[in-house]
Design a protein around this nucleic acid. Structure first.
Lengths: 189, 189
DNA sequence: CAAAATATGTCAACATGGCTGACATAAATG
DNA sequence: CATTTATGTCAGCCATGTTGACATATTTTG
């Protein structure tokens, strides 16, 4: 995707690759030297990570927003609209637009809650599940390839790194979400 | 950021957490079982990773697009507009809008190329550098905190994982970009 | 040199997916 | 019964992506 080939006029002076923390006092500015490598790698890795699904989705007239909805509904069948809003962190109006399209086109369906009939519990249809799995498959292929290159320990270390990058407050909830979804989803065959 | 607390009606049946690769034949569908954990952790980690800068930027009337421009110009002073377009992978019209604002507001400046006078080489102003470093500082704080939790080896393993997640074609170019920028940028004090 | 290619900018129109504010409805809850 | 809750919806705004067409200056090439 695109040739990256910058011709910046580097002051060829080189040398100071190791610049271990500035000598400044304690204030609110940046304390340590920026972790440019991780910052940029994360940018490019994420760009490619979502790039594969994006292509497929755009052929269906969908965008990344649809992907997120489909993903989480597939992973958490029967979830409430409010739950989805919390996860995606968008307004109900934004969600509504996207959700309506996916319902209309038969990827997602809504069932009235049994206990609380105000709720519209969300489920993917078989068609929706197929798409969700296709997209997840593309991302998994990338992940699997990466881990294969690095050795099996890479999975665990990636998992831990990514977890540690999440806001401490949310971390627990995210892990619970993942664990619960693992249990709940796909009562297959 | 938001309470995540899904009340999906999991078929409490649990058990099959280890579902090692589907038994299907060889087709074009998803081969291995989706790596749900990494997929979702990456989603949440990236969300928080860009969240801190987003807050600061929005107070300045800027968005994520401005951040990307500022970041790469700061890291690659003197880069050509075309280079930036290649990295960001957007159209010149999209870039133009954002770039114009940053130039007008004194974060970025453009100089005519010395050899090729058609080029408008991009530089951050001191004001631009300050903002770039502030944003990078926030992201670095998160990264540093994460790595501190995991031990020093985490930096290298994160770097390798993220690199492996990048499209193989681009990987070399990205690494070169990072390495060159490390050399070129900030001829400080 | 004249013609073509290149680097950049710009105008206009459009799509997506965020946002706010206001309001509607149905159901649960005190 | 009054209130709160869960959800939906209308209307409009903003940011940031897109395409297509075209302009301008400069370099490169036949």
């Amino acid at each position: 995707m695109a040739d990256i080939n910058v011709t910046a006029k580097g002051s060829g002076v080189a040398g100071a690759t190791e610049r271990p923390a500035s000598g400044g006092a304690a204030a609110d500015g940046p304390r340590t030297e920026p972790a440019w490598d991780i910052i940029e790698l994360l940018f490019f890795a994420y760009r490619d990570f979502v790039g594969d699904p994006d292509e497929v989705l755009s052929k269906l007239g969908f965008g990344r927003a649809h992907h997120r909805v489909l993903h989480f509904v597939n992973r958490n069948p029967g979830m409430k609209v409010a739950d989805l809003l919390d996860i995606l962190n968008i307004t109900k109006q934004s969600l509504g637009r996207v959700l309506k399209q996916m319902v209309d086109q038969g990827y997602v369906l809504q069932k009235e809650g049994a206990q609380d009939r105000r709720q519209r519990l969300l489920y993917v249809t078989p068609k929706g599940e197929a798409l969700a799995l296709k997209l997840a498959g593309m991302q998994t292929a990338r992940i699997t390839r990466a881990i294969a290159e690095l050795g099996p320990a890479a999975h665990e270390s990636a998992r831990r790194f990514l977890t540690a990058m999440i806001d401490a407050d949310d971390r627990e909830a995210v892990l619970r979400l993942i664990a619960r979804a693992d249990r709940a989803a796909q009562p297959r065959s």
